[in-house]
């Protein structure tokens, strides 16, 4: 029925498109210019020459190492999430014990706890167990804070598996473990890839835990590297923009190939 074009919203969305796209354009075009040229032309001008030197500078100034660290953190977080969340969601959806429904409320409550609220005790805890300035110390709390939303998303997917399928398995004498591996996991592939992508995004973009829990160059992750680069070489704007661009490339690649999983995860996050 809504077939008449809505000019007001159309114009609004076009303006918004410019607001989103212009900074991204300035960022990209800046990375391909020398510092002098960028300074002379101004950020909004069209580049007149082309250089990749800014990217080379960014990588050689330590970002190679930071990338490696971020990859380690991301892989660790995704591994923990994939190990813990599917059994948890399975119990929440299928267990008849009261404890399981209590646990679900407990995780819903967890959604409301901001990381800042617990950062001091987490710092104390990580210090006490000797994991300060260690990537494992970053991985553990980051994974813990990814659990509530991932549980919400995955248990939503698992609820769509019909009772008949479970009953058919039970009829054949299958144990809960067998039902989990033969029925639940294969049928929740979509949800599992969503939580993998979503927790990876959180880990990749994480800032507060690495800021508080690491200090040396050898454990620095990309987001902290950007912050550091800015405080140290704030006037080298093309170099800074190249570093920012590099930090975005993996996420944009994932967006390109796993857009559905990401958007579903974000929608799930909104539905909380």
């Amino acid at each position: 029925m809504k077939t008449r074009p809505n000019y007001f919203a159309g114009i609004g969305s076009f303006v918004w498109l410019l607001i989103v796209a212009i900074p991204l354009y300035v960022m990209l075009s800046g990375t391909f210019q020398t510092r002098e040229e960028f300074g002379d032309n101004g950020p909004l001008s069209f580049p007149t020459s082309f250089t990749l030197q800014n990217y080379v500078d960014a990588i050689t100034s330590g970002f190679g190492r930071y990338f490696l660290n971020t990859v380690v953190v991301t892989v660790g977080v995704v591994a923990i999430v994939l190990l813990l969340v599917p059994p948890l969601s399975y119990a929440i959806v299928r267990s008849q014990s009261r404890a399981a429904s209590f646990v679900f409320r407990f995780f819903l409550l967890g959604l409301a706890i901001p990381a800042q609220a617990v950062i001091v005790p987490v710092f104390y805890l990580i210090n006490t167990v000797g994991l300060y300035d260690n990537l494992i110390g970053v991985i553990l709390p980051t994974a813990a804070f990814a659990l509530p939303i991932c549980t919400l998303i995955l248990s939503g997917t698992m609820r769509d598996i019909t009772g008949e399928l479970y009953e058919a398995m039970a009829m054949d004498g299958a144990s809960p473990a067998r039902a989990f591996f033969r029925l639940v996991l294969p049928l929740s592939k979509g949800g599992i890839s969503t939580i993998a992508v979503f927790s990876a995004l959180q880990a990749w973009n994480g800032f507060l835990f690495p800021l508080i829990l690491t200090q040396s160059e050898s454990t620095r992750v990309v987001t902290l590297g950007l912050f550091n680069f800015q405080t140290q070489y704030g006037i080298n704007i093309p170099g800074l923009l190249a570093a920012v661009t590099l930090s975005m490339v993996p996420v944009l690649l994932v967006y390109l190939f796993a857009r559905r999983a990401l958007v579903q995860g974000l929608m799930g996050a909104g539905g909380k």
């Binding site: 923990i80 969340v85 059994p87 119990a91 995780f107 617990v118 398995m169």
Partner: peptide
């Protein structure tokens, strides 16, 4: 009731989450 998972399935994630979110919340 046959073939339903017990609470044990939820335990590892619950303990892990409690350790890094709920206990710190009380500790703060």
């Amino acid at each position: 009731s046959v073939g339903r998972p017990g609470f044990a399935w939820a335990l590892p994630a619950t303990i892990f989450f409690a350790l890094f979110a709920l206990v710190p919340l009380a500790a703060v």
